[in-house]
Simulated scan of single mutants.
Amino acid sequence: MTQFSDDASVAILAYPGVQMSAVLGLADLFMIASGNSNRADGPELTVTQLTLPASAKSNDYDAVILPPNLTGARGEDATDILRWLRNQHATGTIMCSVCAGAFWLGHAGLLSGRPATTHWALEGEFRAAFPDVELAAEHLLVDDNDIVTAGGLMAWVDLGLFVVNRFLGPQTVSQTARHLLVDPGGREQRNYRSFRPPLGHGDAPVLKVQHWLEAHCETEISVKDMAARSHLSPRTFLRRFKAATGYTPIAYLQNLRIEKARGLLERTRIPVNEIGWRSGYADPSAFGRLFLKATGLTPGEYRGRFGVQS
């Protein structure tokens, strides 16, 4: 069994606009975990809250965490912070981020060619800013050894437990998770992800088809049918639809159908097979496979986690 014998130091960056509930929550989580570990004669985590650049120190930390940001800032002009992050990483520090905190790591040049995640709603913006990053926005947490990134605003809990596991061990993770009544693992962002059709692109024929699909997505629809609705040739329609929405017409339709199914699973007690049919899938097994691929859960599991209680 792996022994965890050395204390570790963690810096939490309270940069301008940071989500302070995450900063304080992480500090509390690490305090609870350290107490659990200490009672078993194990190591502890020393936590430092930094408000860079004013409080930047020369200390080398075992891990640095960039929590979420609530202001829309992305850190591209935070020269002192970005330089400090690069210097810390060069000393062997594990660099961690949650949600939009990944933008700071990206602008520091630490994610180039590396796998990472961020909040699913920031996927388009992140890909545009860092096209050379292997973004996996469907995952809640991506562990790439010295770079660890987590997804949504509350994913600081998942990252915190990951750090506890890394430095204090799985037994302390289990004790801490039970104390906090949180799930120590098994979640993915795609469990929560919603399809948000882009509607502000300004292409009227494409928008007309999108509105039609909203009302008729459960019916059998081909690209030829969509092109006819747009009064464009199929080739022109394909090109303009992809340019306006970022999706091929078939991929868009599949996303729309899965989103319709999500809503029915969440709000109703309609049988799963009927929900598949209402969403455009005559074959229940095909519906189940596609839903699992899109969400990471079977329709029944999704209803059990997010559905109304009868």
Rank of each mutant, 00 (worst) to 15 (best):
residue 163 V to G: 05
residue 163 V to C: 01
residue 157 V to H: 13
residue 209 V to N: 02
residue 145 N to L: 12
residue 181 L to H: 12
residue 161 L to A: 06
residue 204 A to W: 10
residue 193 R to I: 11
residue 139 H to A: 13
residue 156 W to S: 07
residue 174 S to A: 15
residue 171 Q to F: 03
residue 185 G to W: 08
residue 158 D to M: 04
residue 149 T to Y: 00
residue 158 D to F: 02
residue 180 L to F: 12
residue 187 R to N: 11
residue 195 F to C: 07
residue 196 R to V: 12
residue 141 L to E: 10
residue 183 D to A: 10
residue 208 K to R: 13
residue 197 P to I: 06
residue 184 P to Y: 07
residue 140 L to P: 03
residue 142 V to K: 07
residue 170 P to D: 11
residue 150 A to C: 10
residue 182 V to H: 04
residue 161 L to H: 01
residue 157 V to N: 12
residue 183 D to H: 13
residue 190 R to S: 13
residue 207 L to Y: 06
residue 145 N to Q: 14
residue 173 V to Q: 00
residue 178 R to G: 14
residue 185 G to V: 07
residue 147 I to F: 11
residue 207 L to G: 08
residue 172 T to C: 05
residue 179 H to M: 13
residue 178 R to A: 15
residue 169 G to Q: 09
residue 175 Q to P: 08
residue 163 V to P: 03
residue 168 L to S: 09
residue 195 F to D: 04
residue 192 Y to H: 12
residue 173 V to D: 04
residue 180 L to T: 10
residue 208 K to T: 14
residue 194 S to K: 14
residue 169 G to N: 09
residue 163 V to S: 00
residue 202 G to K: 06
residue 172 T to L: 04
residue 145 N to S: 13
residue 183 D to F: 08
residue 151 G to N: 05
residue 148 V to N: 05
residue 199 L to M: 05
residue 162 F to E: 11
residue 141 L to P: 08
residue 143 D to N: 11
residue 151 G to Y: 08
residue 188 E to L: 10
residue 201 H to L: 00
residue 206 V to Q: 07
residue 185 G to Y: 01
residue 205 P to F: 07
residue 189 Q to P: 09
residue 193 R to D: 05
residue 199 L to K: 03
residue 157 V to D: 10
residue 171 Q to W: 02
residue 143 D to M: 08
residue 139 H to D: 13
residue 166 R to G: 11
residue 207 L to E: 10
residue 158 D to G: 01
residue 181 L to M: 14
residue 179 H to Q: 14
residue 163 V to N: 04
residue 199 L to C: 09
residue 174 S to P: 06
residue 164 V to R: 07
residue 165 N to Q: 13
residue 172 T to E: 09
residue 175 Q to G: 08
residue 171 Q to S: 13
residue 208 K to W: 11
residue 163 V to H: 01
residue 144 D to L: 09
residue 149 T to S: 06
residue 146 D to Y: 10
residue 166 R to W: 07
residue 155 A to H: 11
residue 196 R to P: 00
residue 188 E to V: 04
residue 195 F to Y: 03
residue 162 F to W: 15
residue 208 K to P: 02
residue 141 L to W: 00
residue 177 A to Y: 05
residue 189 Q to H: 11
residue 164 V to S: 06
